[in-house]
Design a protein around this nucleic acid. Structure first.
Length: 321
DNA sequence: CTCCAGGCAATTG
DNA sequence: CAATTGCATGGA
């Protein structure tokens, strides 16, 4: 088997076998990770940095992911163990959407079934917080640009030698780096939105102080409502963003964020009339209760993310994730 | 030009 | 309570 990074003798090669077919391309761009970068010269590989470890990944076919890593461990775990958890590989995607769904909504099911390969990942909490704080009322393209600019301006560069020359990757900024950022300078990365920049800085300080970081550690064992309250105490984080952070950054697959797209499919696919009204907190919570009746409670958010991508691509005909 | 993008917070009726 | 507005920008 040929390896792309032949000249880079500092990378470790790892193969992760899964008991399911994992669509890595779909996973990497499934929507919640905006600073995944495709390495253009080698279109089969995707890159990401997690805690100063550079990872190059590709789907190597039948039930296997090929990984080139710049370290043997991440966060004290082997790459294998870390990524198994990162890609939530213990989740059987066939069981995420309740079995009754197929009979109750056959025409929707026909569209949604292929999207069971979309996985919800367990990403770094701080990274997810910043990313979704950038995701208010603007398009995906601008969201990605903001995160990319923040990463390149405040993140640590890592240089990798490849056979086509040096490649520079940027790790996501630490809480400390953003906590000490100047609001006016950070605003250059946040669409010139100074309010957003200030909110991110304040959140980073809360995280850095340990207060928010500790709450994240404990977030798996407490009521979802408690997690939301903790997150919503920060300016710039409302119910929707809090649910996104819980779902994508804290492994709370029961969190069901409702955005403009979810709002649309709740009406179009399931005929929930309240989905036509504006998303006040009261209506937001009502719609979540209705969604849980259809998708179940424990994996409502995971299932919702499959529906989210299906709606955007199959119905709204959007090209990219 | 208008409208809408993976919203939130403050204000007004 | 619910409805409206400012925040900002870019693509369709």
């Amino acid at each position: 088997m040929a390896f792309i990074m032949k000249k880079c003798n500092t990378l470790f090669k790892i193969f992760i076998e899964t008991d399911k077919r994992l669509n890595l391309k779909g996973t990497l761009f499934s929507g919640q990770s905006f600073n995944w970068n495709q390495i253009l010269p080698y279109t089969d590989y995707f890159s990401h940095i997690i805690r100063n470890t550079i990872l190059l990944l590709r789907d190597s076919g039948a039930n296997c992911i090929e990984v080139l890593s710049s370290a043997e461990q991440i966060n004290g775990l082997s790459i294998n163990d870390y990524l198994y958890n990162y890609f939530s590989l213990e989740i059987d995607e066939k069981k995420v959407i309740p079995s009754g769904f197929k009979k109750e909504f056959p025409e929707v099911w026909r569209l949604v079934e292929p999207y069971q390969s979309v996985r919800v990942m367990r990403q770094e909490p701080f990274e997810v917080m910043v990313t979704f704080m950038c995701a208010q009322g603007i398009g995906m393209h601008l969201i990605r640009r903001q995160v990319s600019m923040i990463t390149e301006k405040y993140g640590q560069p890592h240089v990798l030698d490849t056979e086509k020359g040096k490649a520079v990757f940027y790790g996501f900024p630490t809480p400390t780096a953003l906590a000490s950022a100047n609001p006016n300078e950070l605003a250059l990365c946040t669409n010139n939105n100074r309010i957003r920049a200030s909110n991110i800085i304040a959140m980073a300080r809360s995280f850095e102080s340990g207060k928010l970081a500790l709450a994240c550690v404990a977030s798996g064992d407490c009521p979802l409502e408690t997690v939301r309250e903790t997150l919503c105490a920060h300016s710039g984080i409302g119910l929707k963003i809090a649910d996104c952070i819980a779902l994508f950054g804290l492994g709370r697959f029961d969190a069901f964020p409702i955005d403009t797209h979810v709002k649309q499919y709740l009406y179009e696919w399931f005929g929930i009339e309240a989905a036509c009204k504006s998303l006040t907190e009261k209506n937001y919570r009502f719609l979540q209760d209705e969604a849980r009746k259809i998708l179940g409670n424990d994996y409502a958010g995971y299932a919702g993310h499959m529906l989210f991508h299906c709606w955007r691509k199959e119905v709204k005909m959007m090209k990219a994730f």
